[in-house]
Amino acid sequence: MSETIKTDVVIIGAGPVGLFAVFELGLLDIKTHLVDILDKVGGQCAELYPEKPIYDIPGIPIITGNGLSEALMEQIKPFHPTFHLGEMVTTIENIGDPLYRVTTDTGKTFECKSVVIAAGGGSFQPKRPPIVGIEPYEDKSVFYAVRKMENFRGKDVMIVGGGDSALDWTLNLQPIAKRLTLVHRRDDFRGAPDSVNKMRALVAAGSMDLRIGQVTDLEGSDGQLTAASIKDKDGTVSRVACDAMLPFFGLTMKLGPVSDWGLEMEDELVKVDVSTFETNRHGIFAIGDINTYPGKLKLILSGFHEGALMAQRVHHYVHPQKRLVFQYTTSSTSLQKKLGVA
């Protein structure tokens, strides 16, 4: 396990609301670390509608999902937030008054005075293929990510999908697998052309198999796969030996571990106090799409407002001796110093 990272606040989720929270907290001298399961920042804006325009960000008549993420990154630069991408927060333990230990699925731990949950629609997680009876194999012989390549050495590996993840892992695992089979529903790949060419060359050399079709059935016992059935375009079904499978069908939003954190919830949303956006656990806050309160609107601008009020309350926990003075960025030299403009 790595060393514990000490900071003022851990923000769970680097969507637009988590990003803007860095700004509001930063103005109050509160240091932040952000964790997101995606390998990029921007949450829904970056993952679901990067190129689509948003028309209701106050003062910005039109901006794309990606454009907004980039603009927010620029705006929070002066506060030097630290990002931990590709990691999911799994637990929040209370170890003081209030002091929290936050742990991620890679074993990283943080110690912080407040936790801000900006988990939006939940964590983006791999889509599970609708193959009847796949659950018992998951994490034993069906994997949605490769944590350690060595686990695939000498195995009959089946990779399913046609994008970059499927192709990259095909190229990485082919040399160490006993036999690698790539299964895709059509003979056209959306991955990088270079990877497609490399894969095709391996197929031509007889070093791996490419099957055009869809997986319909799994065989095995006690979580250990032995074979998979593939249905090709004309409906013919055939069996392929396989003792490890990696399906890559993109991502979908699932609530994930948020429901295990002892928070009062309603319809998979975290209940908050509307004057502070604090949850039922002191020092744990919820802002953006993940929270609920009377009149809640799942809009980016609402999440920004929630972040500003949250920061005022977090200040009590992080700097209990300091009095909070209300200031404008327009006229306060002290705020402007923090922003690096004065």
């Binding site: 993952e47 679901l48 509608y49 990067p50 190129e51 689509k52 993109g250 979908t252 939003m253």
Partner: peptide
């Protein structure tokens, strides 16, 4: 999920 962005299937 993606509201018509052709990014979620």
């Amino acid at each position: 999920e993606c509201g018509g962005g052709c990014t979620c299937a």
